[in-house]
Design a protein around this nucleic acid. Structure first.
Lengths: 146, 146
DNA sequence: CTTCATCATTCAGCTTCTGAACGATTTGGA
DNA sequence: TCCAAATCGTTCAGAAGCTGAATGATGAAG
């Protein structure tokens, strides 16, 4: 009883909306020849101390082998530096370079512009409430919540 | 100036959160041997009159050839009926069967359960505000907003 | 100093999806 | 009436993105 409408569930709505926004972000990133996961990796490095590739893989919930190829590309762009951990030479420590920080900032600005488009005409209060609520949901989902 | 943090943009947050929720939904759907897109197709048929495969493809923003394989599977499950449009025999009209409606309802219930898990402990008011805001955003993004 | 665990890397392959054929049908002129 | 172009569904090859199983290098434990 009280039949649920699929399209009004958060699960479906956040899923589809998230997909659309990711597509838009991907389109913006195309200019830099990057994918969202590349930027996600930059963000991980930015918001923490130096991390090994395996650490990054765990944080991103992604296979270690994927981190290799993401880091390959970012290293090639000069956005990331790869160094063996002196205290454990198996570990590759990834760190953001100055260029990497710039690149991340540029991508973040692109995302913010997409946000502005999305929220255009929405009341300021609603937007702020949305941010707070999503931050809460992100936190309890194990995602970066800032 | 006022540097934007990527992880706190809606673009990034909705993208990652949406991906997590879609993964969870996919896991629930595994029991029925369905993917979210199958259920999305059922939802399109449910919320409209009879539609041709091309109509569905446009609504779902997906290649027509993908609709073929989704419909193949759903037809095989008896959830969907395929009939040539008598007034234009090129068109394949897709309609929900009674089984299809049941299946959709079951999937919607699964999504609602995931919603409950996600919102557990969140204040009722915040949840309701979230629903309303997301509905608005869905509408202005060309997604089903109900 | 040998055995087992851990990390990065490569690579084969899976899944999901698209775009280019193609056949069947319809439409719009000449 | 007939033909050319457009439209719809279908098949199929293959791109894209990712995983999991090897492999080699290094480290830890006895």
């Amino acid at each position: 009883m009280n039949a649920v409408k699929l399209t009004s569930t958060l699960t479906f709505r956040l899923g589809t909306l998230g997909a659309v926004l990711t597509d838009r972000f991907t389109a913006r990133l195309a200019a830099h020849d990057l994918k969202p996961k590349h930027v996600g990796l930059l963000a991980v490095l930015d918001s923490g101390v130096a991390a090994s590739q395996l650490d990054v893989a765990k944080i991103m919930s992604v296979a270690p082998s994927l981190v290799v190829s993401l880091a390959d590309r970012l290293e090639e762009l000069g956005a990331v530096r790869r160094e063996r951990d002196p205290s454990d030479r198996r570990r590759q420590i990834l760190t953001l370079t100055a260029e990497g920080r710039d690149l991340l900032a540029e991508c973040a600005r692109a995302a913010a512009e997409l946000d502005a488009e999305l929220l255009e005409g929405l009341d300021q209060e609603g937007a702020e409430t949305l941010r707070v609520t999503l931050s809460t949901l992100a936190r309890r989902t194990g995602l970066p919540a800032d």
